[in-house]
Structures are given as C-alpha cells and as structure tokens.
Design a protein around this nucleic acid. Structure first.
Length: 274
DNA sequence: AGTAAACTCCGGAAGC
DNA sequence: TGCTTCCGGAGTTTAC
C-alpha cells in the first residue's frame, strides 16, 4: 500500500519522465476524483511545464512553472504510471495527460477510489477535506523534535500512524519498525525511555531507507511510475506473516488490533511491559 | 450475501 | 472544565 517508500519510489521513477516537459491533451474521466474542480484541470494544466516532482508524506506532488500543483494521493489501489500513449485506456482510469515531446502518457488509475487528486494554485495551502496539513518527514525529523511527540500518552502505533504527527508512516512500516525496535504497538509513547525512543527513530529511518532501496512493498496493486512492483515484501519480518516464525526467535507472529488497524508482532521480541 | 481489506474524517464517549 | 485519547461509522470498491 502506498506509504512513504512507495510514494518516494514513484517520485524517483516519475521525475525523469516529467521534469521540464509540458502536459498536453489533459483529460479527467471522473469528475469526483479531484477536489471539486476537476472541470478546471484540463484548462489549467494543458500546456503547463512541470518544474518539479516531489513527495509530501505519502502523497506525490507535481509542480508546474506558474506555481500550480497537482497533488496525488494513491490510497490503497491507486497507480500513477507512465505508459505509451497508444496503450488502450484501462477501466477506472480517472486522469491522463500526454507528455509533450514524447509518445508517453501520465495516467492515474484507482479502481477503489480511496485515492484522489487535488488541483492547487500558487498561493493555496495544502489543506481541505482529506488534504490536511501533515507533520514532519520521518527521514528528516530531529531527535529533539521526535522526543516531543513521544511525550504523549497515546499508544505508539497510533501516534506513528497519525499523519499530523509524522508524515508518511502507514500500517506496514509501523509494524516493521516496531518489530525491529522491539517495541509493542500498544506501548504508551511516554513510557518509552529516551534510549528506546532514539533507537525507534533510527530504526524507522533504516526501514524506510531500505524499503526505498528495494522500490517499496508490493502485495497486490502497488507499482512504480514505470509499472514495476517493489521488492521489500521479501524482507518483511512481521507484516502479513501471522502464524509464521519470527525471523529472530522463531515464535509465531501474531496479529492484534492496534489503533483500529491489524497489527503484526512477535510477542517474544515485542513484550508489552506494565 | 456478508465481511474484510486501508485510510481519513467526523462525532461522541471516556479518560486525565 | 478542557484537553487528549479512544472508538465506531461513513465513504469508497473489490474479492473471497
């Protein structure tokens, strides 16, 4: 499911196709996929030159010369891919734009429509329904700042998943980071000693970097901008491994509910203290 | 046919 | 009282 490493991989594979190129023949196939202004998208993006492609948490942001931005949330099944313009249009394709000077299209397809598009002008903040402001990036946050987040009484997994606290952590990478740090997902953040909090931050960064190096995680739907799946699922230690032996101690991995989400852990390596 | 999957937002209840 | 946290439901579609 697209989380930070998947969004980062899409940015890295998409950027070489788009950077400095103009959009042509922009078409929105479903009006309710954008933030109430899908009708404006063709007019406002046609002929515009892409100045930058970047990531904000788990979202992809395509920036244009005049400051207009197209924000893309992948949801669970969304795909943002570059394909030959001659390729037939698959069903559930909500958006397409030809990349000027090439024979390629950028297409957005999201069968379940958990994702979406937002068109923002130069001065507009990234706020609105389903586009709330997000916290600092886990790859960039300093320990002193992370430590402040950990002062809360919330369960650590709920805190890590909260996009307003930290931008980009989803269910997979939370479970993977907590296992590698030996922390039970229901532990209260404020109960973590500094040493363990510091270790969690380092571990989280390592997991995210390793996952980016592997092109993210693909179970079913995720693909990068070139249509290729990721490989990090082969290195998962807990996620989607219920009943299988812990790679550290052989104890079967269990699944519980934490923060209202299915959570995978090793009861031996991740004890719940007090 | 019912349920679960992931994620966000919302409202209300509960806890501190 | 007031802030924080928790919990369930809605919205969104597909697959088992």
């Amino acid at each position: 499911m697209p989380e930070l490493p998947e969004a980062e991989t899409i940015v890295r594979t998409l950027s070489p196709h788009l950077h400095g190129r103009r959009f042509e023949r922009v078409v929105v196939h479903r009006k309710d996929i954008a933030n109430g202004r899908a009708a404006q998208i063709p007019r406002r993006l046609n002929g515009r030159r892409v100045s930058n492609v970047r990531r904000s948490g788990k979202r992809v942001v395509i920036e244009f010369d005049e400051g207009t931005r197209l924000v893309v949330a992948l949801g669970m099944t969304g795909r943002l891919t570059v394909v030959e313009s001659a390729e037939p249009l698959l069903n559930h394709t909500q958006f397409q734009a030809a990349i000027a000077g090439t024979k390629l299209d950028l297409r957005f397809r999201d069968p379940r429509r958990f994702g979406g598009l937002w068109l923002l002008d130069a001065t507009e903040e990234m706020v609105g329904p389903r586009l709330g402001p997000v916290g600092p990036d886990p790859l960039e946050i300093r320990w002193t700042e992370f430590r402040l987040l950990l002062q809360r009484q919330r369960q650590i997994k709920a805190l890590l998943l909260d996009q307003k606290m930290l931008a980009g952590m989803g269910n997979i990478y939370c479970d993977e980071a907590l296992h590698r740090a030996g922390i039970h997902p229901l532990t209260r953040a404020c109960d973590l000693p500094d040493a363990q909090g510091r270790d969690l931050l380092r571990t989280m960064r390592r997991v995210l970097r390793d996952a980016i190096a592997d092109g993210g995680t693909t179970f079913m739907d995720y693909r990068n901008a070139d249509g290729r799946p990721g490989g990090f699922q082969r290195k998962h230690r807990v996620y989607n491994r219920e009943g299988e032996p812990c790679r550290t101690c052989k104890t079967p991995i269990i699944r519980i509910t934490a923060a209202g989400r299915s959570s995978h852990l090793c009861p031996t390596c991740q004890p719940l203290t007090q």
